[in-house]
Simulated assay, not measured.
Amino acid sequence: MKKISFIGMTLLFIACTPIRNTNIKTNLLDNNTFELSEISTDATYGTEKNPIQVGGVASNEGPKNERRFLNALAGPNGEAVTYFRAGSCCPIKSKNDPFGSGSVMLDNYRVTWQGAKDTVSIYINMYDSGTLKAPKGFTIKK
């Protein structure tokens, strides 16, 4: 009886565990730009604690997806943005780690636009997929 209860509880736990969707479909404006339709109201969106999840590693498009996301952004008044990759940092947990360790690194990009007083750091996760939005303070490229 204890074996059956343990098995039943295990199955119940597995059935109630949320499954993280790593196959979120994102539309493209063109081959180099994601289509965004919303601006985040969360000031932490795009930080190392809440990175933007562009996915793509499984299909060898991780870095391209990072650029597709950044290409969809505009400055606060619609200005064209420029960006550069500042490097990798900040290990995070991911079930999509291609190396099997369960830990991956984020990429940090520095983004600016004409008239900006400084660059803005945006942290991107190319291992996991999520709903894409422009970070607070940015607009969406037309």
Results as ranks from 00 to 15, higher is better:
Met1Tyr: 11
Met1Gly: 13
Lys2Cys: 00
Ile4Gly: 02
Ser5Cys: 08
Phe6Trp: 04
Phe6His: 05
Ile7Ala: 10
Thr10Pro: 03
Leu12Ser: 09
Leu12Ile: 06
Leu12Asp: 02
Phe13Met: 13
Phe13Glu: 06
Ala15Met: 14
Ala15Gln: 10
Cys16Asp: 04
Thr17Leu: 12
Pro18Phe: 11
Pro18Trp: 12
Arg20Val: 13
Asn21Ser: 10
Asn21Cys: 06
Lys25Glu: 11
Asn27Glu: 15
Asn27Arg: 12
Asn27Asp: 14
Leu29Ile: 08
Leu29His: 00
Asn31Gly: 07
Asn32Ile: 04
Thr33Asn: 03
Phe34Met: 05
Phe34Ser: 01
Phe34Ala: 00
Glu35Pro: 04
Glu35Trp: 05
Leu36Ala: 06
Leu36Phe: 08
Ile39Arg: 03
Ser40Gln: 05
Asp42Ala: 13
Asp42Glu: 13
Asp42Ile: 09
Asp42Met: 08
Ala43Lys: 12
Ala43Thr: 13
Tyr45Asp: 00
Gly46His: 03
Glu48Gly: 03
Lys49Glu: 12
Val54Tyr: 01
Gly55Glu: 03
Gly56Trp: 00
Gly56Arg: 00
Val57Ile: 15
Ala58Phe: 15
Pro63Asp: 10
Lys64Leu: 14
Asn65Tyr: 03
Glu66Leu: 01
Glu66Gln: 14
Arg68Ala: 04
Phe69Gly: 11
Ala74Arg: 01
Gly75Glu: 06
Gly75Val: 00
Gly75Asn: 03
Pro76Gly: 12
Pro76Gln: 09
Asn77Leu: 08
Thr82Lys: 15
Thr82Asn: 13
Thr82Phe: 09
Tyr83Ile: 10
Tyr83Lys: 09
Tyr83Phe: 14
Arg85Gly: 05
Arg85Trp: 06
Ala86Lys: 11
Gly87Lys: 06
Ser88Gly: 07
Ser88Tyr: 09
Cys89Ile: 06
Cys89Tyr: 02
Cys89Met: 08
Cys90Lys: 02
Pro91Tyr: 06
Ile92Ala: 04
Lys93His: 14
Ser94Trp: 10
Ser94Tyr: 10
Asp97Gln: 01
Asp97Ser: 03
Ser101Glu: 14
Ser101His: 10
Gly102Leu: 07
Gly102Ala: 08
Ser103Ile: 15
Ser103Trp: 15
Ser103Cys: 08
Met105Cys: 04
Leu106Asn: 01
Leu106Met: 04
Leu106Ala: 02
Asp107Ser: 14
Asn108Leu: 15
Tyr109Cys: 10
Tyr109Ala: 08
Arg110Asn: 11
Val111Trp: 08
Val111Asp: 02
Val111Tyr: 09
Val111Cys: 09
Thr112Asp: 09
Trp113Pro: 09
Trp113Lys: 07
Trp113Gly: 10
Gly115Ala: 08
Lys117Gln: 15
Asp118Lys: 11
Thr119Val: 13
Val120His: 13
Ser121Met: 00
Ile122Pro: 08
Ile122Glu: 06
Tyr123Met: 11
Ile124Leu: 07
Met126Val: 03
Asp128Ser: 06
Ser129Pro: 03
Ser129Glu: 03
Ser129Lys: 09
Thr131Gln: 14
Leu132Phe: 01
Lys133Cys: 05
Ala134Ile: 01
Ala134Thr: 02
Pro135Met: 07
Lys136Ala: 10
Gly137Ala: 07
Gly137Val: 00
Phe138Thr: 02
Thr139Met: 11
Thr139Gln: 09
Ile140His: 11
